[in-house]
């Protein structure tokens, strides 16, 4: 996240002038000419399909019996909301989201602090290491975790057989809770670095003088942390949490690879996939997709309205500051 250090742009200085000249018009045209293609492409690859999905979700439509396609209005949704399979997938998705984000926040904070305070010589190594889980393919990470715990090929049962409850006979993927734990562990491992990096950027924004002042005032370490550092990082924390939560809610790859939804570990994205891609029930699958999309929108809406998360803080805020700075010059 950039800070007030961003120099005022030339345009920023002029933007305040209220003259609607030929030039502004030309600028607007140029702006849309440059930005337009990207904008159109983004809309074309998402807005059109989701509209189509919404339309399809009103039909009973199976790909292998195209002649029996039939308009059934909201029946697909009624079926979803009256079926425990859907609610179970919903709850599992919610659980995974809550647990992983909570743990990642704590773990991510620890990692961010480590990176923040680390000796210069170590920083490079730490950052490199932490980027590996971030950049690795999710499917690869899922296989890695799967092979580690798999009752047939994994070494975990062998290594940890001294822990009560773990023995050579423990089938991690044969039981809902153990399977979910591994899925969540893999997700946490893979995405904590992302949160840690965002928090690191947040930490860098906390004014050092404030911490020093607190120290002088005799604040303990934990007081410095809870009273000074965290309040000053609130924006960064909220953005990190929201992005991760939205991401976690769409979880698919790890579950697909590790259990395929068995042992009641099915998540919403997998449910949508199974209905439309495996069963070829386009109508029903589209309904699940639309519901999933609505959930994500709702989460976003709640965050923005209720918690006042400023998603645009990365750019617009600094722009505002830059503008302000420019105007004062």
């Amino acid at each position: 996240m950039s800070t007030a250090a961003v120099p005022a742009t030339k345009r920023g200085v002029k933007a305040g002038k209220p003259v609607k000249s030929q030039r502004t018009k030309a600028e607007a045209r140029l702006g849309w000419m440059l930005a337009g293609p990207a904008f159109v492409v983004m809309l074309a690859v998402t807005a059109y399909p989701i509209a189509q999905a919404t339309f399809d979700s009103l039909f009973s439509y199976r790909l292998t019996t195209p002649d029996e396609r039939e308009f059934i209005f909201l029946d697909n949704y009624l079926l979803l909301f009256s079926d425990w399979t859907f609610w179970r997938a919903f709850l599992v998705t919610l659980l995974i989201t809550l647990v992983t984000v909570a743990i990642e926040l704590v773990l991510g904070f620890a990692l961010a602090l480590v990176m923040h305070r680390a000796l210069k010589a170590l920083r490079g190594a730490l950052r490199t290491a932490i980027l590996v889980p971030y950049a690795i393919i999710t499917v690869v990470s899922a296989f890695a975790w799967y092979f580690m715990f798999d009752i047939n090929s994994g070494f975990v049962n062998n290594w940890f057989s001294w822990v009560p409850g773990i023995s050579a006979d423990l089938d991690w993927f044969g039981n809902t809770w153990t399977a979910l734990s591994i899925i969540m562990a893999a997700e946490i491992w893979k995405t904590t670095p992302f949160i840690a990096l965002l928090l690191l950027a947040g930490l860098a924004q906390v004014p050092g003088e404030l911490v020093e002042a607190a120290k002088v005032d005799g604040a303990t370490r934990s007081q410095q942390f809870t009273r000074v550092i965290i309040p000053n990082m609130k924006a960064a924390i909220m953005v990190a949490v929201l992005f991760r939560a939205l991401d976690a809610f769409r979880i698919f790859d790890s579950v697909f690879v590790m259990t395929g939804g068995d042992q009641n570990t099915e998540v919403l994205a997998l449910l949508a996939y199974r209905q439309s891609i495996s069963r070829l029930e386009i109508g029903l699958g589209s309904a699940v997709s639309v519901v999933l999309f609505a959930c994500v929108l709702l989460m976003c809406f709640i965050a923005v309205k209720l918690f006042k998360v400023d998603l645009a803080s990365g750019t617009d805020q600094s722009q505002a500051k830059a503008k302000k700075g420019g105007a004062e010059q």
């Binding site: 983004m42 690859v45 998402t46 059109y48 399909p49 989701i50 189509q52 999905a53 399809d56 992005f243 939205l246 809610f249 769409r250 698919f252 994205a269 949508a272 996939y273 439309s276 891609i277 386009i282 699958g285 589209s286 997709s289 639309v290 999933l292 999309f293 994500v296 976003c300």
Partner: peptide
């Protein structure tokens, strides 16, 4: 677009 669930657009895209 960045928060869009990929799975939501996959079916219509497949059909198209």
């Amino acid at each position: 677009v960045s928060i869009f669930p990929v799975i939501s657009v996959v079916t219509p895209l497949f059909n198209l």
